[in-house]
Design a protein around this nucleic acid. Sequence first.
DNA 1: TGTGCCGGGGA
DNA 2: TCCCCGGCACA
Length: 485
Amino acid sequence: MKRRLVKRSILGSRVYAPSPTGDGAVITGVVQAVKQENKDASTGPRRNVYTVLMQDGSLNEYSEDEIAVGSAQMTAKGPLKSSLKQQSSCNGRDHPPESQKGEANSLAPEPPEDPRGPDHARSVCLLEQKRKVVSSSIDVPHARKSEEEVDMDKVTAAMVLTTLSTSPLVRSPPVKVNECLNGSWKDGGFTPSSYSSSGYWSWSAPSDQSNPSTPSPPLSADSFKPFRLPSAPGAADDVIDEPDGSSLLFDEPIPRKRKNSMKVMFKCLWKNCGKVLSTAAGIQRHIRTVHLGRNCDSECSDGEEDFYYTEIKLNTDSVADGLSSLSPVSPSVLSPPPPVTSDPRHPDANGNGKADSNTTPLSRSAPSTLYLVHTDHAYQATAPVTIPSSTNFTPSNCSSVSISWQSPPVTFTGASASPTHGKTQSFGEQRPQSIAVLSSPPRASGSLRKSRGEGKKCRKVYGMENRDMWCTACRWKKACQRFVD
DNA sequence: TGTGCCGGGGA
DNA sequence: TCCCCGGCACA
C-alpha cells in the first residue's frame, strides 16, 4: 500500500542512487519510469525497478532497494526501501548508505545481521516506523533514535545539501556525500564510511577542488580527511580505498581550522617539485601518483609518501607581506627586513623546524633589500666593521633599539668588515644610491633637527675612554652610524 | 646635566 | 675630504 503511494508519486521525483561507477558515491537523479520486475514474484514481493535519469545524464535502473527518495520535505526522504518497508534501516547495522550500497546491490534479501536477532530488529523496525509516521508531519524532536536512523537522517540531510549545490562540478566525478558533510558531521562524532576524497585545495591547481559546495576548504584541511567508521571495526567495506591515508591521517596532527592566520600546508619535497597542497591526503595522493608512479588509489600505498612531503606552517600575514615584497613596490615600503632568522617578531615567518627548507621564497625575498640600507650616510665610515670582538655589543645590547627602517648595522658591519682599522676612508664606495632607493625615513624635513635617538650610541657603549672605538660619526659628533635607531 | 647631532670651520 | 668643535635640542 505504501509502495503504491510511493509509486504513484515517484515519477519525476528526485532520488538518490549509488553511483554506477560503483565507487560508493551517491548521486542524484530523477525517476523517469517505473516498471515491475516479476522474476522474483515466486519468492517474494515483486520489485519495482526505477529508471533514473542520473545527474550526469546517464540512465540507470535501480531497484527500490537501491535508491532513496529525495524531496523538498526532509521527513519524506530516506531510502525508498525504508520508507516502504523499513527494511534497510532496521537491519541493525551501522553502515551509512555508501557501505549499504554493497548489500543493496545484491538484491538478494540478506539475513538480518543484528546480533540481537531478527526479532529484535523487527520490533525496532516497527517502533521506528511508527515514529516516522508522526514525525513526517510534525517536526518533533526525537527523544531517542536508533543509531542507524540517526545516521540515515544525516545521510539524507547530506543528500539534500548535495543536491542544493548547483555547481556543475558536482556532476562528475560523482558527488561524494561525505565530502560536503564531514566538516559538520565529524565534529559531532559522526563518521560515515570512508571514501578518500579526491578534492584537495591547492595553490597551484585550485581547480582541483572538486566540490565547491565546501565553502572554505583551505581553512579546514581535515575536512577532507577520509572518514573512518569507528563503530564498525570489523566491517571490511568500510575501508574502501584509503588504507594508508586514514590511519596516517589520523595519526598525524592534521591542522584544524585555525582561528588565527596560521595555515598549514603540505609541501612536496620531491626534487624539482615543491608542490604545495593544503591537505595531507592531497599531497600524499600527489606523491603517490606523480612521483611514485602508483596509479592505483591509495590502497596500494605503503605510506612511503610520508617521506616526500613536509608540513609547512604559513602565517598568512607573512605570506601577505611576502607577496607585497614580491610586488614591484619600492623596498622602502617594506618593513625593516629583520636579520632574517633572529627577529623575534617573526618567529613563524621562517617556518618551524620542520620546514627549514625555507618555507617560501617569499620570506627570503625581503632580506635582499637589506644590504641597500646600510650605506646611507655619507660619512658612514668603516668604523663599524671594526667592532672589537671583545666588545659587549651583542644583540641583547641593541635589543632596546627598535628596529626601524634601517636594519641593525650588525649584519652589514660583519659583511663588509675591513681589516684595516677605521681610518680607511673608502668613502667612494658609499654610494648615495641606496638613499634614493630607500627613500630614507621621514627625517624631519631638512631644517628640523633629527629627533634624538633613543638607543645606545657609541659614547654610551664604549665610553669616553674608548673613544677610538666609536664609530666615526660619533667621533665627529655626528649622527651615530653604528647604533642607528 | 648628559647626550645626540647639526652646522660650521680648520687642516 | 677629513677631522674637530661650538652649540642647540632633548631626555
